[in-house]
Structures are given as C-alpha cells and as structure tokens.
Amino acid sequence: MQPERGLEKKADAARKAAMAAFAGATGDQLRQLAQDAGLPLESETMRGPETGLVTVRGRIGGGGAVFNTGEATVTRATVRLPSGQIGHAFALGRDKEKVRLAAILDALWCSDETRPAVEQKIVLPLAQLATRADARKHAETAATRVDFFTMVRGED
C-alpha cells in the first residue's frame, strides 16, 4: 500500500536528518554510540564501502547559473540486515568503516522495531553534539562582530 503523499515526505525528512547526522559524525563518535546502544549490527555488505568523488557545484554570484567548483572525496556503502532491510550511507571523506556502520544504522532506522532506539540513542545524541559545536562556533565568531560607533565631534 502506498503511503499518503504528505506522510511519505515527512518520513523522508526524518530519514534524511538521521542520515545527515550519521554522515556528520566522526567515525569514533558513531562507533562509540553504536556500541553503547547495543543494537544488532549484523549485516551483509551489498555495495562498497567504496570511495569516489563528487563534483561540488556553486552558483555564479551565489544565486545564478551553476558552475563546477572542484571535487570532494565521498564514501558510500549499502548493506542488508538479516531481516532483508536495506540501508544506504554516503559521507564526505574516506572513512569506510564509519560509512558501513552508517549504512547499518540507516537500515536499522528503516525497520519499525529498531527506529525508536536508533533515534533515541544515536540520532538525538549526535544532533545534540552538532548543535552544541555549532553554538560554540557561532559564539566565538560573534565575539569578533564589529560594533560601530560614531565619535561625537562637539561641533554644536
């Protein structure tokens, strides 16, 4: 049965956010969280993990026509759980073990029984780490913000 259009979109957004959290984590963070979560990590590797390139694109003037800026290394993997559930992962860099683990976590996220555990024990802590790191960086940058003031010249 096809899920309703709106619901499908919502599911996509949540899965996209989870996959982004896996991709943004370091290999060590992901391994540690996966280990602590005690999730069943048994899986069969369908593709990869393999490293390749993506061509990074920008826009002329920031918002105009597209142009190719350069390449970046990306690693991808696809795994299948014993249940048959498939999981995919893509991340910048060349950490193959991290990406294979991310693909397993994606497959576990896609399985109804394990999704709450993955959300609670992996996605949420990673999102919190990322938010904290961003907030710190933002505050450090904000401290270099220029507050202009005008000297009173005393002419009147």
Binding site: G52, L53, V54, R57, A72, V74
Partner: peptide, 15 residues
C-alpha cells in the same frame, strides 16, 4: 583524483 570513480554532481551549495 584521477584514480577515483565519480559518483556525481552535488546540488549547488547555498552560500
């Protein structure tokens, strides 16, 4: 770079 396969083009970055 020349030794790696190419997976595709990213969406344009939003600066």
């Amino acid at each position: 770079r020349t030794t790696l396969p190419r997976f595709g083009y990213t969406r344009p970055v939003d600066t």
